[in-house]
Write a protein that binds this DNA or RNA. Structure first.
Length: 327
DNA sequence: CGTGTTTGACCTGCGC
DNA sequence: GCGCAGGTCAAACACG
């Protein structure tokens, strides 16, 4: 059986969901009836991979029990995984700001306006525009890994231990709810996230993270609080492992939420579970966040939680028992 | 004053 | 080429 780790970039999830019949203009809420914007999560797809991975969508998701509703939040069914950027594994640091380009780069140098002849100024602007195009083109080719999940929450912007600065908001077609764009406030960190609400089920918030933090969470306390989770039925190891994996993409730690996780997997990725990959590389004592008490109320599942359970035995405590039985 | 939000304008990619 | 939609910028503004 194919695991999602073996899947490559280019998987067109819409095809697997609705048999190639989905109108690209439709929101994902239309696709699933549960409203997850897969289009925004699983982009950069290729025809080749469509053909290559013609197995069932559920199989693609690593879900063995095909009777499980695909996007049933109530059942906490893991959904799908995929990552982008061939060169970037799950735990590779995010590309530094070198790839980010400001549209106002032609205005000043070192904060001071540059006085030049008009002709030269125009040339410079032309050059800058050209360079901008080239950079943006390259930027698109090497996208940051994306990680998306849906969360049942009343608040749009979930607290995840990192500080975010909102830099944009756009109305989403076919949805009354706008999409918000956030960027990590850390100067050396270019992680972004998009937050939008499913319009068919407004209680569901879809968060898409792009890139990985290059710094520890500024808000997370030391992980010695993890021990407190034991009393609530989550082992310290499981909690720390999950929180660490979550921190890799800054999964929100929000009370009373329900989430599904989505990975965007990519070509030539290590044959290792993304979460496991992330977990193995995380230094919980330093970089990994500790578990906020709110985490105890979380009922989340990573996409590949089941395989992770098998391999590492870390997350059993937070997996609903009925899901284990379904395996 | 520092930090974060709002919002209109702009850029880019893509389909027709 | 044109129009649309997604994504980003940056000035203005709010707030503690």
């Amino acid at each position: 059986m194919h695991t999602f780790m073996e899947r490559k970039e280019g998987l067109k999830i819409e095809d697997y969901v609705m048999g190639n019949s989905i109108n690209s203009n439709s929101s994902f809420c239309d696709y699933t009836g549960n409203g997850f914007p897969l289009q925004s999560v699983f982009d950069s797809c290729s025809e080749e991979d469509n053909n290559k991975f013609s197995l069932g969508f559920m199989e693609l998701l690593g879900v063995q029990d095909f009777t499980c509703p695909l996007f049933d939040v109530a059942q906490q069914v893991p959904v799908s995984t995929k990552m982008e950027s061939p060169e970037q594994g799950f735990n590779l640091p995010a590309t530094p700001n070198s790839s980010s380009v400001s549209s106002g780069s032609s205005e000043a140098v070192n904060g001071e306006p540059v006085k030049v002849e008009d002709d030269q100024e125009e040339d410079d602007q032309q050059k800058n525009k050209t360079q901008l195009k080239v950079k943006k083109t390259n930027q698109k080719r090497q996208r940051e890994p994306r990680f998306a999940f849906m969360t049942k929450s009343e608040v749009d912007h979930l607290e995840d231990g990192y500080r975010w600065r909102k830099y944009g908001q756009k109305a989403v077609k076919n949805s009354p709810f706008p999409r918000s764009y956030y960027r990590c406030t850390s100067t050396s960190c270019n992680v972004k996230k998009r937050v939008e609400r499913c319009f068919t089920d407004p209680s569901i918030v879809v968060t898409t993270y792009e890139g990985q933090h290059t710094h520890p969470s500024p808000l997370m306390p030391r992980p010695n609080l993890v021990g407190s989770t034991i009393n609530s039925g989550i082992s310290a190891g499981a909690a720390a492992a999950f929180a660490g994996a979550a921190a890799a993409f800054s999964v929100p730690m929000q009370r009373n939420t329900q989430s599904h996780y989505y990975y965007q997997q990519q070509q030539q990725q290590q044959h290792q579970h993304p979460f496991a990959n992330s977990l193995s590389s995380l230094n919980f004592g330093h970089n990994g966040p500790s578990i906020d008490s709110s985490f105890l109320h979380e009922r989340r599942l990573c996409t590949s939680g089941q395989s992770l359970l098998k391999d590492h035995g870390l997350l059993q405590d937070i997996i609903p028992s009925h899901m284990l039985k379904e395996e």
